[in-house]
Nucleic acid binder design. Sequence first.
DNA 1: TCGCTTGTCTAGCGCTGCTAGGATCGAATC
DNA 2: GATTCGATCCTAGCAGCGCTAGACAAGCGA
Lengths: 192, 192
Amino acid sequence: MSVQERKQRERAERERLIVATARELAEQQGWDAVTTRRLAERIEYSQPVLYSHFRGKREIIGAVALEGATEMAAAMRAATRTTDDPRTRVAALARSYLDFAARNPAVYDALFQLDGGLAFAQEETPEPLKDAFAALLESLGEVAGDGVHPGLFTEVFWAALHGVATLTRARRLPPEDTERRVELLVDRLAVL
Amino acid sequence: MSVQERKQRERAERERLIVATARELAEQQGWDAVTTRRLAERIEYSQPVLYSHFRGKREIIGAVALEGATEMAAAMRAATRTTDDPRTRVAALARSYLDFAARNPAVYDALFQLDGGLAFAQEETPEPLKDAFAALLESLGEVAGDGVHPGLFTEVFWAALHGVATLTRARRLPPEDTERRVELLVDRLAVL
DNA sequence: TCGCTTGTCTAGCGCTGCTAGGATCGAATC
DNA sequence: GATTCGATCCTAGCAGCGCTAGACAAGCGA
């Protein structure tokens, strides 16, 4: 029995190694550089081993996305915990969101740009994703304003942040003015 | 002399055919299906012919993007021309933006999601892209509010629309509530 | 010790973007 | 009208991609 347990542990450990290595490689050189061959070489196993853990590259991206969602939710909660003032809270939330996207571009891509085979905005959405949205909702719901559904408001605020994050990283928006954009978004969208 | 002119005309015609075919194929089956082989087959030339017009696939995407930018600018101007009321204008602008993104997903991707090798937000940005931004600025600049730079306001509003457009299409946001999102964005962001 | 399951690897398929080098065709010259 | 020559296009191929079939070895239970 204990032999099987050891094997299961080792297998789980190797799966973590795959995800961590994929993430590392993606952050270093972009997702295009994350090929199954390179990934296999880095974990010092042959290519087919990857397919005994994941159905394909898509699922590996999905695993990185789930890991990232958990971290992102934690980062946003940590940023909003320090104050009770709604204005400050929402601004801190927005900054921590954009900061996470800028510091972890590959993870952000896995979450919101690439196809990781994950379900969004429905029943079978994985828990980490629901929780990340919940982290947004916790701070944004209270500034939605009268007659506006908190969920809808959160979606709109999120979409605005997502637009700023992606357009900035794709060099469609100059990065210098990010702070002023955050100020504008918070001042206009949030009802204090 | 006239022989050369005819050849030049035919060459330009073939280039248009390449771009139009790439766009058509991308809208039908997504950009992943736009391979150089399939594209070559559809225009009834061999693969290397593509490379006598464009440096590579990236430049073909860029050409589709430029074409799309011109159309998008025209669509937005047509939508805002019908009224002088700022609120109505901005709402019409937002709807026409999202409508264009939804109706031409491949073109929208070429513009804002994929790498078409184009410069953005700088001196050497191609004219169609500058003009598309100008079309946004024309309606949004007047509702930026006191003390807010019209360009910055336009960028933020654009980013919000971009976020809604991309998250909706990537199934991160349920599509039903788009109209309510537009209303919320216009009501909150624009200073009337 | 033997048989068998489990796990891993080698090799290969069909596809990708891209390119080198040869063939062909048509315009210009004698 | 025949010939030369340059432009134009195609065949064939390279390296790399995601993914998988089938051979093989290691280690377990009998």
